[in-house]
């Protein structure tokens, strides 16, 4: 029985190639790859903070109804600011890892500040009420703020969820030290090889320069009527 099903599957698979026969471009496959990185004409200038910039403070509403600002954290040495949200599969995949980051670093002076940048009118799963539910269900021990006017995420230059900004307090300014992903494997937390965010905070705690200051990863675009075509 099982064998038959397998056979059936194999036969169907082989038949699927008839979909490819009409493909006019298969004959090109033999072309040798060129080892060049072509440049893009008129690349848009990157907005938001660069490494070394001072991040402006903000005051955003937390899921408990209270306003939260970075200045409230008198004893903090810095912050792990994470733009994340409810609905995005990548954000979901990182929920536990964000909780763990706060557990590991809040007491050492680097609390997690999570901010949902999305417009709930576009993505209802990211409404304030849904954020409250998620924070409660997951037992978030850090603020989960809503960027209601959608002004904070553009100031940072966040463009997807999750998107991490690690800040260090220097002379009463919050200096951007790391921008990017939490780690290198959203799919399998147990197979992560590079823990970018942890490495950055560990370096800052040790008084060392952050080795990898910028990383990129696929994420969900931020839902904003102003930028969506």
């Amino acid at each position: 029985m099982n064998k038959l099903m397998l056979l059936c599957g194999a036969a169907v698979l082989s038949m699927a190639s008839c979909a490819g026969n009409s493909d006019a471009t298969t004959a090109e496959a033999a072309t040798v790859a060129k080892d060049t990185t072509p440049s893009t004409p008129a690349a848009p200038a990157a907005k938001g903070y660069a490494i070394g910039d001072a991040a402006a403070d903000f005051s955003l509403k937390n899921v408990d109804g209270k306003q939260v600002a970075l200045a409230d954290y008198k004893d903090a040495k810095g912050f792990i600011v994470i733009f994340t949200c409810n609905h995005c599969p990548y954000a979901k995949a990182y929920e536990q890892r964000i909780i763990d980051l706060n557990k590991r670093y809040a007491d050492k002076g680097y609390p997690v500040i999570a901010i949902s940048p999305n417009d709930p009118a576009i993505e209802p799963k990211d409404s304030y009420e849904e954020m409250q539910k998620l924070a409660k269900a997951k037992g978030y021990t850090f603020p989960y703020l809503i960027d209601e006017g959608q002004t904070v995420y553009p100031a940072f230059g966040a463009n997807k969820t999750p998107h991490v900004f690690i800040l260090q307090k220097e002379n009463n300014q919050n200096i951007v030290k790391y921008i990017g992903a939490i780690d290198d494997n959203y799919e399998h937390a147990d197979q992560v090889k590079h823990r970018y965010a942890e490495a950055a905070v560990d370096a800052l705690l040790a008084g060392k320069p952050v080795e990898t200051t910028k990383t990129v990863a696929i994420g969900c675009g931020i839902k904003d009527k102003k930028t969506e075509s």
Binding site: T40, A43, P44, A46, N159, K160, A181, V216, A217, I218, G219, C220, G221, I222
Partner: peptide, 9 residues
Amino acid sequence: EATWSGAIP
């Protein structure tokens, strides 16, 4: 692409 943030599409 150097300027690609990783957001899709």
